[in-house]
Design a protein around this nucleic acid. Structure first.
Length: 126
DNA sequence: ATGGTGACTCGCG
DNA sequence: GCGCGAGCCACCA
């Protein structure tokens, strides 16, 4: 296409937006859906950048960043404690069972994700 | 173009 | 189950 990197971040945001309330996904799974199974860090970086408004218009207000946790089903305490705490709070409000250690049962709340056809439609549309 | 950074993951002990 | 080290990727200065 016109660019070899059609905004990896933007793609991440679009996919995350598709995660329904009560479900969660992991950084690695999001990356894998986009075709980069090893780009988990980039996904996390994309969400961190979400704290600030982008030119694209993606913000923490219109992207359900809280529905993305690590592969272990635990809220990443890597980032600021305050943010992690708020993340657990929001998830509980959405119906996701989060225990005291910030752990989530992926067997129950894991979002299966998009199929390639759906993904293509999402990335093109909007 | 090079190097540093980060809300990740996996493999070991 | 936990902590540590190494690998991977995209973004910014």
């Amino acid at each position: 296409m016109d660019t070899n990197t059609p905004g990896f971040f933007e793609q991440v945001y679009k996919v995350v937006r598709c995660i329904p309330p009560g479900k969660v996904s992991s950084y690695g799974r999001i990356a894998a859906m986009l075709g980069y199974p090893r780009a988990a860090r980039a996904v996390g970086y994309a969400l961190s950048a979400l704290r600030q408004p982008n030119q694209e218009g993606y913000t923490s207000a219109n992207v359900p960043w809280q529905r993305v946790v690590n592969s272990q089903g635990r809220i990443s305490i890597r980032h600021r404690e305050q943010t992690a705490n708020k993340q657990a709070e929001i998830l509980r409000a959405e119906g996701v069972a989060v225990d005291g250690n910030g752990r989530i049962d992926l067997a129950v709340h894991l979002w299966e994700g998009l199929h390639l056809v759906e993904l293509d439609d999402i990335l093109r549309g909007d």
